[in-house]
Write a protein that binds this DNA or RNA. Structure first.
Lengths: 219, 219
DNA sequence: TAGATTGTTAATCGATTAACAATC
DNA sequence: TAGATTGTTAATCGATTAACAATC
């Protein structure tokens, strides 16, 4: 039996590596492997083996065996539990445009503890439609629904002009965490957790990496 | 005249804050402001003022004036030039599904130096279509096109099962930077820069923030 | 002038990496 | 046994923050 470590404070960096490990381990398990070493994980994922061991030790009480490594199943259980403990939240999505629909259709969230229970839009033509089993409601009904279901997580996929006002509405309805896909900064009370899904920032980082590679080459 | 600092090595953290500043400054300029202080930027963006000044000093030779702050226009020019210098790349996108179409329709990339010149898919029904002015070609023609146009950046929006094979194909055709939206790890030569757009990881970070907020509350 | 703000140097903080004994 | 691998402690590295003189 795998003990789940509760109340452990993992760094943001570790937290964002955990889903990567999880995905990798699930693939390995599927491929029929039973054990995996931190050396192997690090090699494939281009990380430092010590870092991998530290990350794993933080969320899992399953200890590895010298020479053999870790039991994949145990690690998966541990990471799932750890993320699950932090996670499993109902969420609402606002803005049923191209991106909103893409997210509503995305099945992967359930594996990571997010459950989108309702979508909202101002466009009357969309209201009442079901996308991937999730009903689109009128934007006006957002506060009531969020309050009634005690929902804490909101996803914003509206055009950037509308994002601040939607965020304010969500905050006023009791939402405490906002996943913002609109390319704009939000001004909100420090009580609200905000995660920006910023494609421009990602792109900048990739470009930087590319320039580094190309520069290294010249030398 | 604003000098552009070339060959400056900004940290990954700084790089990913630059687009955020840029967006904020553009909004301020639009609102009619002429000057802005690092204190104000930091306050609104919830950053440390010293950090803001350091970031700005790194990419801009425009110096701020005590009491007044910085000229917004100069800062915008500097950041645009800096990101532009690193950036301006033609790119191809592979996988014209829900997410692929969303990205093809997204106008924001041009502001940050990315220019998607062609899309590819294996589905014959999609081939020949134009999305937002970008033609969808047969997946088979990817290598030839990438080589001929000397394209260095590839965007992967195929299902995860196909991602590795697409990545291999891109790498073999000369692509040096891959923006991977498929929820899977890619094994590639260290020569290739890869940026994972990992929704699961983002979600984990947001959940962690939320848990922190909720925990703080109890105390 | 008084006070807000800059730019820089030094201190702190946190995360990554190196070193190495323990062990299967 | 020999060697790969673990887990932990110490060292390093890098980024953030604090302190403060300079200045508009």
């Amino acid at each position: 039996m795998i003990e789940v470590k509760e109340g452990v404070t993992a760094s943001k960096a570790t937290i964002s590596r955990l889903p990567v490990y999880l995905r990798f381990l699930r693939d390995k398990l599927k491929a029929g492997d039973e054990n995996v070493s931190s050396t192997l994980i690090a090699g494939q994922l281009r990380l430092n083996p010590v870092q991998v061991r530290k990350d794993l030790a933080l969320v899992s009480s399953a200890s590895g065996k010298p020479k053999l490594g870790f039991k994949i199943k145990e690690l998966i259980e541990s990471i799932e539990s750890f993320l699950g403990v932090c996670n499993t939240h109902d969420a609402v999505l606002c803005g049923v445009g191209s991106l909103g629909v893409t997210l509503l259709k995305y099945e992967g969230f359930k594996n990571y503890g997010l459950n989108i229970v309702a979508a909202f839009d101002t466009n009357p033509e969309l209201v009442g439609k079901k996308i991937n089993g999730i009903t689109v409601f009128s934007y006006n009904s957002l506060p009531a629904k969020v309050k009634r279901l005690n929902i804490k997580v909101g996803i914003i996929t509206v055009p950037k002009e509308a994002a601040q006002s939607v965020a304010d509405g969500m905050a006023a309805s009791g939402i405490r965490a906002i996943w913002n896909f609109a390319p704009t900064h939000l001004s909100l009370s420090p009580d609200i957790a905000v995660k920006y899904e910023d494609l421009a920032a990602s792109l900048a980082v990739l470009s930087k990496k590319l320039e580094d590679k190309l520069r290294d080459e010249e030398t």
